[in-house]
Simulated scan of single mutants.
Amino acid sequence: MSESAMKEVNLQSIRAASDPEGLGSARLEEQTRLYEGFATTNIGVWNRLVGELHDAVMSRATEICERQLMKEGFGPPPAPYAFIAFGSAGRNEQTLWSDQDNGLVIEENGDPAAKDYFAIFGPRLSHILEKSGYPPCPGNVMVSNPLWRKTVKEWGRQLENWRSELGWEQVRYLMIAADMRHIAGDGSLSAAFRRVMHDVFERKSSPEQDLGAAVLRNTVRHKAALNVLGQVITEQNGEHAGDFDVKYGLYLPIVNAIRYLAVVYGVSGSSTLERLNQLNQLEAVPFRWLELSQKAFYTALRFRSLASYKEEGGVLSGTGFLPGEWLRKKEIRSELREALGTVKLMYRTLQRQQRYAERKWL
């Protein structure tokens, strides 16, 4: 399939789906068509098309969920809500086989029935999404979990609690929240969530409670998957022995480094590319550094979709590993080493910043 034939996603069957099974079938048909054109499609165009597909499926899932509850006698939603995405969906960087990372922002209207309704709505929506081809999030960052299903005021208190503790897990939760993106429902609630989050992130604090420093401590745990000889580090054992972990070895180190800079400079974009563009506008880091980071990021996106996957019951699920036979291809190995070299450069810069920050606390 030529790139000219891949300018848009066919969303008609997705928008017409009336049940989870039909939605899953429509999604599988369209993502199969997209995947057939992957090799001839620019990675930036590809990333946009995949995002449009997922947004349409997730949005339709919320409509199906509302209809199901109406038919079962629960009535319409007793309060406006926003269905939001986190993780790669929040950054609009999914693969075709991404899992669930989502939540709800609910309007506080004083109706006691709202809490009961959304306690049913959340798990039901998560179930519909699973039926539509989205595996559950291993970390349980899902609308079915009350931790990720709150009113604006409750979100404010939760974010403030995480901000006040700044342990490893609390910082991880804050960074998950930082990737929030509106998917469906009342967009003003998503905007309110983002304003609350911005206020929490920008709150002045003592050096010991500095959010940027805490995020930096979490971020530098990831290292570029290159050894001292500049060789790519692959899996040593198990079913993926000899394969390369694209997600944790390349993609997430880039995402985390750019997200850290976004927090430090108050950048509001939720996607990695938006953050890079805004950092460039602020002249926050050298242009060459940003240019190399963008190139490495595109490489990470492409390799994530080249990673091996499996199909079970009509559902595609990715392994996140680039097969060893791909690494034996000279052009692939060269491109991967170049991207990992950029990650190594990025993290040397971050580690210097961490050492400087630690000296300031002494």
Rank of each mutant, 00 (worst) to 15 (best):
G185S: 10
E108T: 01
I128E: 00
S88K: 15
G341C: 12
T41P: 06
A191K: 12
R149Y: 00
W168R: 11
G87V: 05
A178W: 06
T62A: 10
L301R: 13
D99K: 04
N161L: 12
R149E: 02
I43Q: 11
A178V: 06
V50I: 12
Y265W: 14
L250Q: 06
L273F: 00
W155T: 04
K247C: 05
V215F: 03
A178N: 15
S88C: 08
W326V: 10
Y251V: 02
E311T: 13
I183K: 08
S206Q: 13
Y298M: 10
Q68S: 09
A79E: 06
G110S: 07
M58I: 02
R48P: 01
F287E: 13
Y134S: 02
S317T: 15
G156V: 03
L34Q: 00
R328Y: 08
L273Y: 00
G37P: 05
N277T: 12
R124M: 09
A257G: 09
Q170I: 01
R27Q: 03
E8D: 08
A284D: 06
V57W: 00
V50N: 04
E72P: 00
Y117H: 05
A26I: 01
G167V: 08
E154P: 05
W289M: 13
L104H: 01
V285D: 00
G139N: 15
Y134N: 03
F303R: 07
Q100K: 01
E331Y: 11
V141T: 02
T95S: 14
P323A: 08
E108A: 12
S188W: 04
G230E: 08
S317N: 02
S268A: 15
F297I: 10
E130W: 03
H182N: 07
Q294K: 12
K7A: 13
Q281C: 11
Q94P: 09
N145H: 00
S144V: 03
H222Q: 13
N92T: 10
D199N: 14
G266M: 09
V232F: 08
Y298E: 13
A56P: 05
I254N: 07
S305W: 04
S271D: 01
L11K: 12
R15H: 09
A178L: 12
Y309P: 00
F201S: 07
V246L: 07
G24C: 05
G249R: 09
H127A: 13
N10T: 10
F297Y: 15
H198F: 12
E72M: 10
R221L: 14
D116R: 13
T41L: 03
S317R: 12
R157G: 02
F201W: 12
S98N: 05
L96N: 03
E331V: 10
Y81V: 08
W46V: 02
L306I: 01
V141W: 04
D199H: 11
E338Y: 11
E239V: 12
A79K: 07
S305F: 04
K360R: 15
R302T: 06
L147M: 06
P323M: 07
P20M: 00
L104A: 04
H182G: 07
P323E: 05
R359Y: 01
L350W: 05
S206N: 12
R337N: 07
W46S: 05
G51W: 06
G73H: 14
A178D: 14
